[in-house]
Computed example of a mutant assay.
Amino acid sequence: MAELLNRDVQRALLERLQASYPAPLSPMAFRDFTDDRTAAVNLCYLAEHRLVDCEVRVFDGIPRVAHPKISAKGIDFLADDGGLGAILGTVTVKLHSDTVRDLLIARVRESDEPDTVKTRLIDQLKATPAVALGQLTERALDAGLQAMPRFAEWLQGQF
């Protein structure tokens, strides 16, 4: 079965289905560039990845596909920019000012500074407004990244 899976066939199937969107196609619509078994196996594979919606039935070990239709995820897959899925899948990370404040206070406490300096800095951090903490966080992040001469190399090691 694995020898029937083919990226070129999968792309051609998706493009053919996209051209007929939102209407489903008959499996006969793919006969001009692949045989029935190859089309069915690749459509099943695409359906398992939710790029295609279709009904799959197996008769005597041979898969049959009915009413194949490209899904929104399939259209986004074909889009150069990732489509709406890329926009809707954007993740925004927000750090609450109390979280930032707690992280900074922890770093001050871990520092080698004298206790009098630590106490003064902690009191200042506790009195700092959220907007100023945001600006301080941006500057600290920028300074940290500049202090890492091989940032891209380090980042690759994290994933």
Rank of each mutant, 00 (worst) to 15 (best):
A72E: 14
I70D: 03
D102E: 11
R101Y: 01
K126Q: 14
A19I: 08
D35V: 13
L84D: 10
V58K: 06
R120G: 00
F59N: 12
M28L: 12
L4M: 03
T90F: 12
C44T: 10
G82L: 02
A147V: 10
V100S: 04
I70Y: 06
D8C: 01
E48M: 13
D53I: 00
C54W: 07
P68R: 08
T116K: 03
F30S: 00
R7H: 08
F159G: 01
L136T: 10
S97Y: 15
P63G: 00
S71H: 02
D102N: 07
P24C: 10
D76W: 05
P24G: 06
Q135K: 15
Y45T: 04
V41Q: 00
T128C: 07
P22F: 03
P149A: 02
L4N: 03
T34W: 10
E3T: 11
A143I: 00
A132D: 04
I122S: 03
L95Q: 07
L104T: 06
G157A: 00
K118S: 01
D112V: 10
R57H: 04
V100A: 06
T128E: 02
P24Y: 05
R11C: 02
I62S: 00
V52Y: 11
W154Y: 14
A86T: 10
R120M: 08
E48C: 14
L4C: 06
D53Y: 15
D112W: 08
M28F: 15
R107F: 04
Q146D: 15
D102R: 02
E3R: 14
A40N: 06
I75V: 05
D98K: 12
H96Y: 11
R37D: 08
D80V: 15
A12V: 07
G61Q: 08
D98V: 04
D32L: 02
K69V: 15
Q135R: 08
V131N: 12
V56W: 01
A2M: 10
E153I: 07
Q10N: 07
S20P: 10
P68W: 06
V91P: 06
Q18D: 10
R107I: 06
V41K: 04
G83A: 05
T92G: 11
G134T: 13
D60W: 00
P27K: 09
Q158M: 12
E48V: 13
G89R: 07
F30R: 00
D76I: 03
Q124R: 12
L95S: 05
A130I: 01
A127V: 05
R107Y: 11
V65K: 02
L14R: 09
L13H: 05
L43T: 09
L14E: 02
I105Q: 02
L14M: 03
A140V: 10
H96A: 14
R57P: 04
P24N: 05
A19F: 15
I105W: 08
V93N: 00
Y45F: 13
L141G: 00
T119Q: 06
I122P: 04
N42D: 01
H96W: 07
T92H: 01
